[in-house]
Design a protein around this nucleic acid. Structure first.
Length: 137
DNA sequence: GCCAACGTTGGC
DNA sequence: GCCAACGTTGGC
């Protein structure tokens, strides 16, 4: 089982939008980058977990956890592009901000902290996952 | 196949 | 709104 980070602009699709979907499940669609397309098609598996990250907003950060419930399948009518279905696992009681993540001594390894990173889905190590989760305690 | 121009992303 | 980073496009 692997861990990921899924970026979304909350103005387009926020964690509350997901929470209000039927069965709290939605296709993660609209990816138009080949590297991420390949991850969606080949690497992201059922039962994988992902952080839900809000980007391009006043305070960017991680707001919750989602689970992959359907593996990569083609977007209807958009042949080269793929999506997965994700289900809300939990919304965090508070956002873990990008600033906090950058400040933490063990997290500068996270791809999200790299300037110019433009991949909308990035892998997260088990170690990184555990450290981020420890912020909530 | 190179590379300049352009468009998009995303933090600030 | 600015700008750095970087993917994509297209002329050569």
């Amino acid at each position: 089982m692997r861990y990921w980070l899924f970026k979304s602009e909350p103005e387009t699709f926020s964690i509350d939008d997901l929470a209000n979907c039927p069965r709290q499940t939605e296709p993660w669609n609209g990816v138009r980058n080949y590297q991420v397309r390949n991850m969606l098609r080949d690497e992201i598996k059922k039962k994988d977990l992902g952080f839900f990250y809000h980007s391009s907003c006043a305070t960017p950060g991680i707001v919750g956890i989602i689970e992959v419930v359907k593996e990569g399948y083609p977007e209807p009518d958009s042949p080269p592009w793929y999506m997965v279905d994700v289900k809300l696992v939990m919304k965090f009681p508070r956002m873990i901000t990008l600033e906090e993540i950058k400040r933490h001594p063990h997290l500068p390894t996270m791809i999200i902290t790299r300037k110019g990173n433009r991949l909308s889905i990035t892998p997260v190590t088990k170690q990184e996952w555990k450290v981020v989760m420890s912020f909530l305690i």
